[in-house]
Write a protein that binds this DNA or RNA. Structure first.
Length: 816
DNA sequence: TAAAATGCGATTTTT
DNA sequence: TCGCATTTTA
């Protein structure tokens, strides 16, 4: 078998990179056309790996350099902070430019910036705080409780989806037509939630967008101002925009206006990579944009600089099966490269063992671990792979865990900080009123909530309304908040946080907790994060209100206003553009924490194999990619099969997965998988039928059933303890395997339950083996029961589902 | 008030 | 199966 990685040369694929003397050097014709497109609406269909970010940043640089626009006239919108940061970084390497003057950021970041500048017009308190997803759910939960509704029937999380969905459709409670009881009540909750948010001075993510949109919609002067200001608007990942985001965009650049007035909107996206319909993304916005803006300039970036030919052939062929496409075919000059390797395994366990062995071999062949990605459709699949990696002692990193600002201890600390800024933030109040414990129990809190409710005041304001010992304890907490506010007055951000960690008792609590070391460390990390935010990170990009007009002459290059007392300027305090009121660094930091949840945990720095869902792999690329669990029901996922839109999105997901690979791509599936405590028998994904044979290399014989041929031999190899290496031809025994304690993989990979079932023979049929049915086609036998006339079989036919069949009637033939 | 017991759900996720 | 959130119990 010639699958040994060192057999192959891993030269870098052809790249655009070359000495650059001018911005436009080394752009291909399509890229050039996009970068230098005239100042009118344009739609760029940017294929995976086609240099999209380069085009976006180069265009901005070119516009600035050629004097077509000043920094203040540029708006560039992205979905993630990461993308926004990258754009800024790359832009500054191309051109010395005042980035602060431009509006580059995420939709939500820019909305925040907008609302900070116009908080009064938007009807918000100046120091409004932002609720993250979990804050939102708990706020809604409080509303549901206050309304004395059944939480079983009105599940807070679902209600939060309802509300976010309504907001993303631009609907306020009064706009929703509700006919049934359920919806009517949800609308009532929505209304009560809005009132509560207004009372507490907080906004959720969707509110940032909707509030900005409404303000522009209802305020002609403001709208005209911004329309005149932004000459060039660039939108990244346009296929991911939702209804509200598109409507928001049109406020800044109305279709009729654009073009005629020299306003230009450059929408960049890839309909084939639209994988977020489930959270409201409307691919249709691309077609709508083309129509509504009468786009004359549709540019396709189809030249791929990432992957070799076979990988692109696979991607192209697969995605061509989708009916709803704008149409695009990736091409490369890099040559075919290696074939796409396909592996079949007996079990998820075996799949995991195989892939880590293969990954280790790649690593020995000279590929950094961080350049190897293991992708899966759903998070639950990471478990087996993780444990295999763990047992083998291979460093790995799983994406998608808790992020820094979402950690309990960090959120607790932030809650105290928020109370300093705004004591009426009931979410924060409830979060920490009794943490660390200060004898304030559930009864006391209920009394307090009743008092607050009946007077329409915040919990903080109602503390005095609770009598007796309980009231005294509450007063003690309110005092703590007040005194901490006084103590920290005028301190810099680091000192403020240090003080809060002490006076709140958080530090002490974790010092005394035997498992508190890590949490203490994170609290220390919070101080560092704040420090970094104030000093380097370009303080206040989020919270600082920028002048409504282009940067005024009295403004320093970093956005701070001149003429402030030195001490104030040093604390990086920024006055509001309209009112001159001061926004504290603390408020800015809290905003930052809400809008940017930080990295998810993991031993950063270590060279580790990357594990993630296909969704989180979007936008990334790796030398080698494993797409695992390619089984019917998993990928495509069973929940997506009810309609063709769902299946097409799954296919796009697969397309995204394939196009992550630069040099080597593995596809794997297995016959047995533990899922939710049950053994499932899956058949291979239909996507295999949609890939070109010529680009594939089946490393296990195609259509081999479990227990036969290769698989049998494979198992024998396992049980002899010789592992995979004899099968896949990996040369030497890996170092990590020299430790017998860690060599858990030597155990036969077939679960005991499986072995037992395999023995359960029935007329040539075997559980776990493939069967053929004249109507349903290929399937996998899951269960055999009964004898003679009563004999029945349960078969998983993948796309036809799991079926019980009477063997006396159904014609089932075993497949070998 | 904290530990133990029980119940529930289980694609995908950024802001 | 397993992680979590909520409820029960000492």
């Amino acid at each position: 078998m010639n699958s040994h990685p060192s057999d192959d040369l891993f030269g870098a694929p052809a790249a655009v990179a070359a000495p650059q003397t001018g911005l436009l050097k080394n752009l291909n014709p399509e890229q050039y056309a996009a970068v230098t497109a005239p100042a009118e609406p344009a739609l760029i269909l940017a294929g995976a790996g086609s240099g999209k970010t380069r085009v976006l940043t180069t265009r901005i640089a070119w516009l600035l350099q050629t004097g077509q626009v000043s920094p203040g006239g540029v708006m560039a919108v992205t979905f993630t902070n990461k993308a926004a940061k990258e754009m800024i970084t790359r832009l500054t390497t191309m051109l010395p430019v005042n980035v602060r003057g431009m509006w580059i950021g995420t939709f939500h970041g820019l909305c925040n910036r907008f609302l900070r500048a116009h908080w009064k017009l938007a009807g918000l308190p100046q120091g409004f705080q932002i609720l993250d997803a979990s804050d939102t759910v708990s706020a809604i939960k409080r509303v549901i409780k206050a309304m004395k509704l059944d939480e079983e029937r009105y599940v807070p999380k679902q209600v939060s989806w309802f509300i976010a969905g309504a907001k993303e459709d631009g609907q306020r409670p009064g706009d929703i037509e509700a006919w049934d009881e359920q919806t009517k009540t949800q609308v009532a909750i929505y209304q009560a939630y809005e009132d509560q948010c207004a009372r507490e001075g907080v906004v959720d993510f969707a509110e940032l967008m909707l509030r900005s949109y409404e303000l522009l919609r209802d305020n002609l002067a403001l709208r005209q101002h911004y329309q005149q200001r932004f000459r060039h608007i660039l939108v990244d990942e346009f296929q991911d925009t939702n209804k509200l985001q598109y409507a928001w965009l049109k406020m800044f650049a109305p279709p009729g206006n654009a073009g005629g007035s020299g306003q230009s909107v450059l929408a960049v996206g890839d309909d084939d990579q639209s994988i977020y319909a489930f959270r409201g993304a409307r691919v249709g916005n691309m077609a709508d944009f083309e129509r509504e803006y009468r786009v004359r300039n549709v540019i396709k970036l189809e030249q791929n600089y990432r992957s070799f030919g076979n990988i692109l052939d696979a991607a192209n062929e697969l995605i061509s099966r989708n009916s709803k496409r704008l149409g695009k075919t990736l091409r490369t000059e890099a040559g075919p490269g290696e074939p796409v390797r396909v592996y079949e395994q007996a079990s998820d366990f075996a799949e995991a063992q195989w892939l880590i062995e293969e990954a280790q071999a790649l690593h020995r062949g000279g590929i950094a671990r961080a350049e190897i990605a293991v992708l899966y459709r759903s998070n639950a699949q990471s478990r087996v792979i993780e444990s295999a990696l763990f047992n083998a002692g291979i460093p790995y990193r799983v994406y998608g865990g808790l992020r820094f600002f979402e950690r309990k201890e960090v959120k607790d600390a932030l809650a105290y900080l928020r109370l300093i800024e705004n004591p009426h933030d009931d979410t924060s109040f409830l979060r920490v009123v009794n943490f660390p414990a200060r004898g304030i129990g559930a009864r006391t809190i209920e009394l307090l909530q009743d008092a607050a409710r009946s007077s329409g005041r915040s919990l903080y304001q109602s503390v005095g309304a609770v009598a007796g010992a309980a009231g005294a304890k509450l007063a003690g907490f309110a005092n703590l908040v007040d005194s901490t506010r006084n103590l920290t007055q005028g301190l810099n951000l680091r000192k403020i946080i240090e003080e809060v960690l002490e006076t709140s008792g958080l530090n002490e609590f974790y010092r005394n907790d035997k498992d508190g070391a890590e949490r203490l460390e994170n609290l220390g990390e919070l101080i560092n994060a704040a420090e970094a935010f104030v000093t380097q990170e370009g303080f206040g990009r989020d919270a600082v209100a920028l002048p409504v007009d282009e940067l005024s002459p009295g403004t320093l290059s970093d956005g701070r206003a001149e003429g402030l007392p030195a001490a104030v300027a040093q604390a990086a305090v920024t006055p509001d553009a309209e009112t001159g009121e001061i926004i504290s660094p603390l408020a800015a930091f809290l905003t930052h924490a809400a809008l940017e949840a930080g990295d998810n945990q993991a031993q950063a720095g270590q060279d580790a194999i990357q594990l993630m869902t296909v969704h989180s792999a979007k936008g990334l690329e790796f030398d080698a990619v494993f797409i695992t669990g390619l089984e019917e029901g998993l990928f495509p996922h069973e929940n997506s099969l009810s309609d063709s839109d769902g299946l097409e999105e799954e296919r796009r997901l697969m397309y995204v997965a394939i196009t992550r690979a630069r040099q080597r791509l593995y596809l794997s599936f297995c016959q047995t998988r533990m899922l939710h405590g049950q053994t499932r028998y899956n058949i291979k994904s239909r996507f295999f039928d949609e890939l070109p044979e010529s680009a594939l290399k089946w490393l296990t014989p195609k259509n081999q059933g479990f227990g036969s041929g290769y698989a049998k031999e494979y198992q024998d190899a396992w049980s002899r303890g010789s592992g995979l290496k004899s099968m896949v031809g990996a040369g030497n025994r890996p170092a990590w395997n020299s430790n017998p304690q860690k060599a858990a993989w030597v155990e036969p990979p077939v679960p005991a339950a499986m072995v037992k079932k395999v023995d359960d023979e029935h007329g040539g049929l075997r559980v776990g083996k493939g069967v053929f049915h004249t109507k349903f086609g290929e399937g996998v036998l899951v269960t055999l029961e009964g004898k003679g006339q009563d004999a029945r079989a349960q078969v998983n036919f993948g796309r036809h589902g799991l079926k019980w069949l009477a063997l006396s009637v159904a014609k089932l033939t075993p497949i070998d």
